[in-house]
Design a protein around this nucleic acid. Sequence first.
RNA 1: GGGUUGGUGGUCUAGUCUGGUUAUGACACCUCCUUGACAUGGAGGAGGCCGGCAGUUCAAAUCUGCCCCAACCCA
Length: 886
Amino acid sequence: MDTPESERAANLEGGYDPEAIEAKWQERWVDEEVYAYEGTEETDPNTTYAIDTPPPTVSGSLHMGHLYGHTLQDFAARFNRMHDGEVLFPFGYDDNGIASERLTEEDLDIRHQDYERREFQRLCREVCEEYENSFTEKMQGLGCSIDWNHTYKTIEPRVQRISQLSFLDLYEKGREYRKKAPAIWCPECETAISQVETEDDERHSHFNDVAFEVAGEDPPREEFVISTTRPELIPACVSVFVHPEDEDNQDLVGETARVPIFGHEVPIIADERVDMEKGSGIVMCCTFGDQKDIEWYQAHDLPLRVAIDETATMTDLAGDYEGRSTEEAREAIVEDLEDAGYLRDRREIVHDVGVHERCDTPVEYRVSKQWYVEILDHKAEYLEAGAEMDWYPEKMFTRYRHWIEGLEWDWLISRQRDSGIPFPVWYCADCDHPIMAERESLPVDPLSDEPPVDACPECGSEEFEAEEDVFDTWATSSLTPLINAGWDWDAESEEFTMDHPELYPFDLRPQGHDIISFWLFHTIVKCYEHTGEVPFDATLINGHVLDENREKMSKSRGNVVAPDEVIDEYPVDAIRFWAASAAVGDDFPYQEKDLTAGEKLLRKLWNASKLIDNLAPADPAEPNELEAIDRWLLAELDSAVEDLTNHLEEYEFAKARNRLRTFFWNTFCDDYLEIAKTREDSPSTQYALRTAHRTFLQLWAPYLPHVTEEIWQAVYARSEESNSDLESIHTDDWPAPQGYEADLAAGETAMEVISALRRYKSENQLPLNADLESVAVHGEIDGFEDAIRDVMHVADLEVLAEPPEITTEVASIDLDYSTLGPKYGSKVGEIDGGIESGEYEIDDEAGVLRVAGEELAEDLFEVELERSYSGDGEMLETESAVVIVG
RNA sequence: GGGUUGGUGGUCUAGUCUGGUUAUGACACCUCCUUGACAUGGAGGAGGCCGGCAGUUCAAAUCUGCCCCAACCCA
């Protein structure tokens, strides 16, 4: 009977079969908890690398952004796990908030209004759980080195406790307040929302020119016209504004206007916030049409006329229109204005409307009592905190700075929703004094739990009202560093503690560039206020994956590429190799053909490993002395290791990837392996081969975790035989330079000679293993003669002490412009001209070049000679050698 | 409307901060070749006025200004 693929021991037989092998390792890594974080309080924070990854919103399926973002994080996690020590790569789900409520409503085709609160919450948990399970499965299929024991959901009780602790702490620090003020309101979701939750959307609408009569005994004129896109707000009109420099309309200032149809009278006021360019330059101010109306309401102490309620239904202030939706009222009012002769013009326009990002409903502005976190007074601190972090790429800091500089509102954190984390607050029924829950009893739900006091400390009343609001999503998701570090209140010592203080501040915060302004910002605000520290040493901003035409993927465009489909087609390792191709922070397109480069690399690595396995024993002893060619390879390897380590420490994944690929493919496979084939009996070569191979596997491991693990287990790991715990390559040590010294120049020259001989064979249509009678080389190839002879099948290799008999003539003269320029300035043009026209003289005796009346010293120019060889055989030239093939 | 970032062979990209005359690599294309692993491999080749215009400079993909295009953020 066949052994199931998943249980087959690793070996190098046959071709590489990613489909079976990748699934096998993903399963074992999870089963054997290879990536479990094992640090404790005692662990040195300097050798602990902790990532705080923003938990994905539970809103559906895995997209390319998740794949790309997590792959980048995984590069960092895997490199640091090998290089530094303990790594925490946690995972969370953001299943708390409006997004998950809407998901539930859509999934079950229900409305939250039709359910009792607890019942709806239960449904949310169920729906989210299903989505989370399938998401987890897909994440594990990406092979990320996440510690699956270290996960959280933002709705779980532990996180609820942390959220409520955070609320109480900020309240005690005087950083939170409750205030009745205008706030952005979503009539569909029936909750206040914050500014960052709105976005602009283009909508078709009409501009309506409406006549207002001027009231009073002796008006300067009969009427004036205002333009509005929202006639349904006319009953809410509280004043009319004119710009103070608007000469045409100055006569109106100080007069009173009569609102058409509704008949109430409002003052006409001068204010420089009026946009004179728009319409007639006269505008009405309502409760509330836009943000400017709010500013006017505050600046001029205007009354409130609330004509639209929380469900976008007209109130009794709208008279006959009461009970209609804003849409219906708009049409009806326009008709009635026309009938009454007030409508002067009506034209179609397209304009931007603020809508709620979760449901695309145009938002309203409503006065309501809400909780705020005060942030405007600490802008300088938050800017300073952001500047303390390392930004990768650095330029992304600008976005953060501009965001903070442009802040105009404190952070509204209360939401009138069902499923969320409740505010741990009750209010005195008589005097409205807030009663905070006690820290020990958190999490609490004021709707079902009792307040911690029997009587109001202010007025003695014994009646309390529970706060019904829940926290804004970001009030919780801004706490992820504290959640991951196990932040809590210790009642005995009366201070905040962390289960894992060694993790905080976190080493890395990865995220897309679109959420710098709210998610990252809010996280810094919260953690900074709680701990007085910046929560992250560094932040890594990933770009977006675009479609093959460089356009943003979106459902409406239908150009979304689902990661599942890509993973079905291509090895995860190949996808990872592609993901490493873009500079961090840059958007880049997904093109299927780019994945073939990764596939080819996997095959190359596999095949090279097979060859090495045939050429040398797995663990050869180190010889006393290495031969030149082998020492050369290991010295080059040292330098690659050093470069790679530097790149990875700087999160330069693309640079590291390209450096490693070039060295592995060109230098190692194309050059060294071919030579090694002819030297398999040499203990020196055997040792170098194996050392390089082990090192390559380790260097590739962060990028190609599956194939390197398979080869590692097949060849080097002992866990298979000893039946002990898995000795994964991913928990092995990152290679360090071994200090090999070699004549790198001679090695380079030798490789040039080999290249030249290959080209010679290729051009003469000879097989590469064709024998060459005799070859003479003039150039520094000390110690590499045998290598050249063997790999190129040269019968007789001669190293010439003197250049071969050649006649030379000057082909060109290269000038060293970087020294020539500063020295001769504008004379350079003449010098160039002199050389071009042949009006120059080379004085070999003095070692100078005379041109354009100047004498250029030896180090300023280089004479390129055209060599022609008149002896036997054919001459081949390389950068630093001359080769004669006999 | 304001700001940020980017525009390099057919495609993707390195190089731009720190200016130096031969602009990197991959994919695709063309020609040739069975090196003891890999033909899904190897050796070669063709393909670029570095978005446009002006300026600074002996010298500009690189610095400056303006313009065009795209993405993102903010109005």
